[in-house]
Computed example of a mutant assay.
Amino acid sequence: MKLSLSASQQIRPSLHIPSTSSQLLRHGQPKEKVVVVLGVTGAGKSRLSIDLATRFSAEIINSDKMQVYQGLEIATNKITDEERRGVPHHLLGVADPESDFSTAEFRAMASISLRSILRRRNLPIIVGGSNSFVEALVDANFRSRYDCCFLWVDAAMPVLASFVSDRVDRMVERGMIEEVRAFFRSNADYSRGIRRAIGVPELDEYFRVESECDEETRARALAEAIDAVKVNTSRLACRQLEKIHRLRNIRDWQMLHLDATEVFRKRGGEAEAVWNSVVAGTAEAVVSRFLYDSEPVVYGGVMSMRSGARPLLEATAS
């Protein structure tokens, strides 16, 4: 497998984490801190991770199974250079698209990236929709070495489904069809590598028939393929949500629940204001407490951090 460990090279202010944590390693030193951002596709995980990274001098480790591969930037909805706002990203577009990037490989490479981030005295933020990758990492003796703050960006499914549908239309406008066409092979194996990404199998039938049918039939085949992409993306979101509930309710992961539903219902400046107050503002307050006043408190299954100020949980749902 061809892999690249390159990340944006830039000078960033170091993160000072006081050694006051009650969670200590055997030799008496405090555990180092890691933030994990969970959520279904389209909920706003990447946006929140960038907001936090610019606030706390952090670097981001991608945990999305498809975004780890090189190529298909539009179809896999990779964050753009502009959207990254100078924040270094790891494990984003590093794997050979023809190979299978395994859970074990993710765990090994994420651990390397995490240690390098901490050596630079920056905060690691793990973000992505592949909860099985995150679970495998965290369950591999991870919490014996690190304190984790789990943030769950959520939104009502009917509202999110409408957003996802519109997002697919925007991806098509940006050139997703031609991008996927470059990966089309008549004998392709859609069970391996990047061809498992939503959008690739769905467009396969269209590519097979487009040169053999009239314009009306071709347009209908394309519309059906795009509809299939929307349906399968919504189904993916449902599966991701089920996994998050399992991690929370069965594996007992304590998460801060950030409900972004109103962000999707608003437009323009109103949406921005809701995001900043309900989602980003609450998350920043909790991460600040996690880093500098780090005693966890749970309210009805929702995690916050203890401090002299009252808990900022009015914007969360239990």
Score class of each variant (00 low, 15 high):
R107I: 13
I50P: 02
P30L: 07
A104Y: 02
D96R: 07
T54L: 04
A136M: 05
P88A: 04
L52V: 02
S57F: 06
V40Y: 01
A140D: 15
T76C: 10
A53T: 00
I117D: 04
I79K: 01
P30S: 10
E73T: 08
R119K: 12
A43D: 07
S63L: 03
K45S: 07
F142Q: 08
V35E: 04
K78D: 05
T80Y: 05
F101L: 10
L48N: 04
L52I: 03
I50D: 02
A53G: 01
F106A: 15
A75K: 01
L48P: 12
E98R: 12
L137R: 06
V40N: 10
S49T: 13
L91I: 15
I79H: 00
P88W: 00
A75H: 03
Q29I: 00
I79F: 01
L118D: 04
D51F: 01
R55F: 02
N62H: 08
V37W: 11
S102Y: 06
G86K: 01
V35I: 15
I74C: 11
V94P: 03
D81Q: 10
T76H: 10
V34G: 11
V35K: 08
F56K: 04
T41S: 15
V94R: 09
S116Q: 12
V34N: 04
V94N: 00
D51A: 09
D139K: 10
L38H: 15
S102W: 08
E73G: 13
P124A: 07
Q67H: 04
V37H: 08
F133N: 10
G42A: 07
T76V: 15
F133M: 11
S46W: 04
V94Q: 07
R84S: 15
G44Y: 05
L38R: 05
H90G: 03
S116P: 05
G93Q: 08
